[in-house]
Amino acid sequence: MDLTALIPPALGLLALIFSIMVIAARNLVYSAAYLSILGLSVAGLIAILGYPIVAVLHIIIYIGAGILFIVMSVSMIREVVERRASKALSLVVAVVASLPLFYLAIMADNPGSLPQELSDYSLLSRYISQSYWLPALLVFLSLSIALIAAIEITRARVGRR
């Protein structure tokens, strides 16, 4: 039996377990930490799909920067007794909202990993530099503005408008 065939279901199971733990954890710092493990397992699935560059970016930028920021921010906020909304209604709405994705998952076949010839990232860099230069510029600007705004908000003093 080929053990490599078991890796995607195992990573998927790990992602599902940790997604439930993210929602169920009482402490928000633990919740953010579980989110990082969920991100790692999703990055593994992305790499198995045949997108190693996206998986590396997901780990470096998203988990390395984003989730670390969440953990640091959450640790500055006082823990509160959390009120929960109606669980049954939330579950019904969530099931209805995700039904199209379930339908797509059942109807679509499993194509496997990306062919080797498609993993040529010179094509991707050509796309970004030629066809997508404006979105790339906007993304760069939005990240810069978000960082400057975050620094300004956290340095602001009480009473200063």
């Binding site: 995607p8 279901p9 998927g12 992602a15 599902l16 997604s19 439930i20 993210v22 929602i23 928000l28 919740s31 953010a32 989110l35 999703v42 699935l45 799909l49 969440i70 921010s73 959450v74 906020i77 509160v80 959390e82 009120r83 929960r84 909304a85 109606s86 669980k87 209604l89 939330s90 579950l91 709405v93 969530a94 099931v95 909202a97 995700s98 994705l101 379930f102 797509l104 998952a105 059942i106 679509a108 076949d109 499993n110 194509p111």
Partner: peptide, 30 residues
């Protein structure tokens, strides 16, 4: 059946439930 789409569908279900069932801003954002 596409296992990756199935995993993403279940993750989507769990996250939608998490957003709707919580009143805490941090948990909603997570």
């Amino acid at each position: 059946m596409n296992i990756y789409l199935l995993i993403s569908a279940i993750l989507f279900l769990v996250s939608t439930y998490g957003i709707l069932s919580s009143r805490n801003m941090v948990r909603m954002l997570i």
